[in-house]
Nucleic acid binder design. Structure first.
Length: 438
DNA sequence: AAAAAAC
């Protein structure tokens, strides 16, 4: 059965904008999310990479704001969208602007790494939708350049990362500043169980839309793994890249230094390569992505700054030159290819010391990645035990456990069995206040 | 343990 955007409850103006932007039929995450959001529900939306999550929250948000009789206050904003990297914020804003051409709504994006003055000036006039990275937003809050109290919609893109250690502090502060009776929307392709629990405290009577199990990789990505020593990886990658001179590749490394070093080696060997990581200026970062997009380079070597959300059409290969420490990052990295129905290839290079990481990734995505070359290293006794036991991912010491009491509010002391699904506590029925009142 | 995110 064919569902179109019109039947999802969007108005004619927006339908025209959707068509003008080249969208024909809504994706499953859009079909399921849009009516719920228009209905005013809080939402947890989980869907594979490249299936249109931005429009899944952006379109109903715009529709709602168009119907909203309230005018934004001076310096105020109606809706706040947060994302973990500057590039992703800018991309979201760009997508939204595409839908707003025929409307009076204003989108403003604020990120670090660029002058703050223009952002202050724009915000002084108020905005309907504000897209931001957390650090710069809080800077603007401290300068009294933005009033979040008028924001009655909060969206967290890449929600599991926004709720993880590196962002949670800023996020809590921001959530305490937006309107208490807001509508909250969380979206991601991954949602680890521990983070999901924390996420619930930001939601009020939420609907959950899960198009496929969280962590599942996109269908059109063909995955493989090569086993080889760390020192053999560079030559291997060079051979691969030289065999596909017309393809567009993204190569992920574990560290900024490693990414820079690898990019130089590739460039010395005649590959048109660039790099992107947090040690580069924003200008350099933007140029690197633009370079890949416009064909000045074929290969972009990156850290996880480029792992999530970034949409570069035409990326045919994603190489995991080093496997990520956190299994979820693998799902996002390879999700830079095979977007919007395209096909793509994900190639992992696994050194013997990375085998445990590989097994964690396979456990998360629910498949064994086909071995394309090299010998499968023998499983150590410790790994054997861990795999048989199943259960815990990550370090036994609990490196990713949220610190302090940040998630203690929900589960009562003791927290006996975290695996008991729904049975444990009745907080669904009795929605205690969300985490928001600072 | 690394990366990201403010100056």
């Amino acid at each position: 059965m064919l569902t179109d955007f019109k039947s999802l409850g969007l108005s004619d103006d927006l339908l025209k904008a959707i068509a003008d932007n080249g969208y024909s039929a809504p994706t499953p995450i859009q079909q399921k999310s849009i009516p719920l959001i228009l209905d005013g529900r809080d939402l947890m939306g989980l869907a594979q990479t490249g299936t249109g999550k931005t429009a899944a929250f952006g379109l109903p948000l715009i529709e709602t704001l168009l119907a909203d009789p309230k005018k934004p206050q001076p310096k105020g904003t109606h809706a706040l969208i947060l994302a973990p990297t500057r590039e992703l914020v800018n991309q979201i804003a760009k997508n939204l602007i595409g839908f707003l051409k025929t409307t009076p709504l204003r989108v403003t994006s604020v990120v670090g790494g660029v002058s703050i003055n223009g952002q202050i000036k724009r915000l002084s006039k108020g905005t309907d939708i504000l897209v931001a990275t957390p650090g710069r937003l809080l800077d603007l809050v401290d300068r009294r350049a933005v009033d979040l109290g008028t924001a009655s919609y909060l969206v967290l893109d890449e929600a599991d990362q926004m709720l993880d250690l590196g962002f949670i502090h800023a996020l809590r502060r921001i959530a305490g500043l937006v309107a208490d009776d807001r509508q909250t929307l969380l979206f991601s392709a991954t949602m680890p169980k521990q983070i999901n629990e924390l996420a619930q405290s930001y939601l009020r009577n939420p609907a959950r839309v899960e198009v496929s199990p969280a962590g599942k990789t996109a269908d059109k990505i063909s995955q493989s793994v090569h086993f080889l020593d760390q020192k053999a990886k560079t030559d291997f990658l060079l051979t691969q890249l030289k065999n596909q001179p017309d393809d567009m590749s993204l190569v992920f490394c574990r560290t900024k230094h490693g990414a820079e070093r690898l990019m130089r080696k590739l460039a010395q060997s005649g590959i048109a390569a660039g790099s992107i990581h947090g040690n580069k200026s924003q200008n350099q970062r933007d140029r690197a992505i633009k370079g890949l997009r416009e064909g000045d380079i074929n290969v972009l070597v990156a850290t996880d700054v480029a792992a999530r959300g970034i949409d570069i059409p035409g990326v045919s290969h994603v190489y995991n030159f080093e496997l990520p420490e956190v299994a979820e990052a693998y799902v996002h990295r390879i999700g830079r290819t095979a977007r919007a129905g395209a096909e793509g290839e994900a190639v992992a290079l696994c050194a013997p010391e990375e085998i445990a990481l590989l097994r964690q990734i396979e456990k998360l995505i629910g498949i064994d990645i086909p071995v394309a070359s090299g010998d499968v290293p023998p499983m150590s006794a410790a790994e054997g035990r861990a795999k048989r036991k199943g259960g815990q991912r990550g370090k036994p010491q609990g490196a990713r456990k949220p610190s302090g009491g940040m998630r203690s509010h929900g589960s009562t002391a003791g927290g006996a069995n975290d695996n008991s699904k729904q049975a444990r506590r009745p907080r669904r029925r009795k929605p205690q206040g969300r985490q928001s009142a600072a």
